[in-house]
Simulated scan of single mutants.
Amino acid sequence: MIALPPYAALLGLTMTADDRGVPVLTMPFADSVLGRPGFLHGGAIAGLLEIAAITALRHALGTDDAGVIPLTITVDYRRGGRDAPTLATGIVTRLGTRIAHVDATAWQDDPARPIATARTNWRLDRPS
C-alpha cells in the first residue's frame, strides 16, 4: 500500500482499498478539522482531496518515490461536510510522461452525493 504524506496524520487519515485495490481515505470528524460548529473546515476537505489525488497517482505509478509536483488544484465545494466520517478517492484521468491529471471526490454517506470534488494537475519528474 502507498504511504501517506505527513499532513495526513494531522487530519487523522487512514487508508484502505476498495474491491479493485484503489486507495480510499477516511477522515474522522474531530475538533482538529472543525470549521463552523458542526461542519468540516474547507481547508481540511481540500487537504483530504489533495492527499486522495496524490495517493491515487502514486498508486498508478506503483511507487511512493515518484517525483510528483502539484501544478494546480481546483476544489469545488458541493455541500457542507457534517459531523460524520468523510471518505475520498482519486482517479487518474491522464498519465503522461511529464504531466498527470487526477480527479478526487470526497463524500460522507453516499459516493454519488459528494461533499466536494477536485481537479488536480501534476508535473512528473521521472527518470527517463
Rank of each mutant, 00 (worst) to 15 (best):
H101C: 03
A100W: 14
L87K: 10
I115E: 00
A116I: 00
R98E: 15
L95P: 07
R58V: 04
T74N: 14
P114N: 04
R79V: 02
D83H: 15
A106W: 08
A66E: 05
D110G: 12
T72W: 12
T97N: 15
A88R: 08
T89K: 04
R78F: 04
L57W: 09
L71W: 09
T86E: 01
R78M: 10
I91G: 04
W107P: 00
R79M: 08
A60E: 14
L61M: 09
P85V: 08
A66K: 03
T97C: 12
G80H: 14
L71S: 12
L71E: 12
G90F: 01
D103A: 06
D83M: 15
D76V: 00
R58Q: 07
I69L: 15
P114R: 00
G80I: 07
R82V: 12
L87Y: 14
I91A: 05
G81L: 10
G81Q: 09
P111I: 04
T93W: 10
I91Q: 11
P114H: 03
A88N: 12
G96R: 13
G62H: 05
G90P: 03
P114Y: 01
I69P: 14
D103I: 02
D109Y: 08
T86R: 00
D65M: 09
P70T: 14
P85F: 07
T74M: 08
G62P: 13
I91K: 08
L71H: 11
A66L: 07
D64G: 02
D83Q: 15
T105W: 00
I115S: 00
G62K: 03
T63L: 06
T55G: 08
G90C: 01
L95G: 09
I54V: 11
G67L: 09
D103H: 07
D65N: 11
